[in-house]
Simulated scan of single mutants.
Amino acid sequence: MRGIPMTATEHRNELMSPEQLAERLGVSLRMVREMYYTNTWPHLRLNKRTVRFTEHHYEQILELSEKRPATLVRKTTSAQKASELAELLSQKRLA
């Protein structure tokens, strides 16, 4: 089937080797191996030496790797809060 584009159904049912996944993600084979050895990424272990990935695993890996913007959390001490509150109150009195 090489050279013939696969349908979405065919693509979903195909198992990928670690090499194929690495190529698809654009990362090294070493990284893929490290991620499944440490159980960081979902995978199928067919036997002691054979690891495969499904299309669903690929999608989960992308989701796990997605960098989402963190909400801005400002850590302050009680003294900082008291100082800010005092400043706000003094501004209010001046107005």
Rank of each mutant, 00 (worst) to 15 (best):
G26M: 06
Y37A: 11
L62Y: 13
L44A: 02
R24Y: 01
E63K: 13
S65D: 10
K75S: 05
T50L: 11
T76C: 07
Q60W: 00
S65K: 12
P42V: 06
E19K: 07
L46N: 07
R24C: 06
A22H: 03
E19V: 08
Y58N: 04
K67R: 14
A22W: 01
R52G: 02
K48N: 10
L25H: 05
Y36E: 04
T54I: 06
L25N: 02
E19H: 03
R68K: 15
V32G: 04
T40E: 07
F53H: 04
K75H: 09
R30K: 15
A70E: 13
E23V: 05
P69K: 07
H56G: 10
E63Y: 02
E66Y: 06
L29M: 12
H56M: 07
H43D: 04
L44C: 07
N47F: 13
L29T: 13
K67T: 15
L46E: 14
A22T: 03
Y58C: 01
S65M: 12
S28C: 08
T40S: 09
N47W: 13
R30D: 10
K48H: 12
T71F: 09
T71M: 10
R49N: 10
L44R: 11
N39T: 05
N39H: 12
Q60P: 00
R33I: 06
I61W: 07
R68P: 00
E59K: 11
K67C: 05
E66R: 15
M35E: 13
M31K: 14
A22M: 05
L29G: 12
M35R: 15
L46Q: 09
E63R: 13
N47K: 04
L46V: 07
E23Q: 14
K48W: 06
L46I: 11
I61C: 04
T76E: 11
L72T: 12
K75I: 13
V73R: 14
V51H: 09
H43M: 14
V27G: 03
T71W: 09
H57L: 03
T54P: 06
E34K: 14
L25C: 06
Q60F: 00
H56T: 10
V51K: 02
E59F: 03
V27C: 08
T50V: 15
H57T: 01
L62Q: 15
V32F: 05
E63T: 12
G26Q: 05
H57E: 00
K48L: 12
R74M: 11
L62S: 04
K67P: 06
Q60K: 10
R24I: 00
G26W: 01
M35S: 09
R33N: 15
I61D: 00
E34R: 15
E59Y: 01
L21K: 05
E34S: 11
R74C: 10
E63P: 00
T54V: 07
L72Q: 11
Y36S: 03
E66A: 15
E66G: 02
N39G: 07
V27R: 08
E55V: 01
V32W: 02
R68N: 09
E66S: 13
H43G: 06
L29Y: 12
H56V: 08
E23M: 07
R52W: 02
R52V: 04
Y36N: 04
V32H: 01
T40V: 11
N39Y: 05
T71P: 05
K67L: 11
K75F: 08
R30W: 10
I61L: 06
L44M: 10
H43E: 05
E19G: 02
R74P: 05
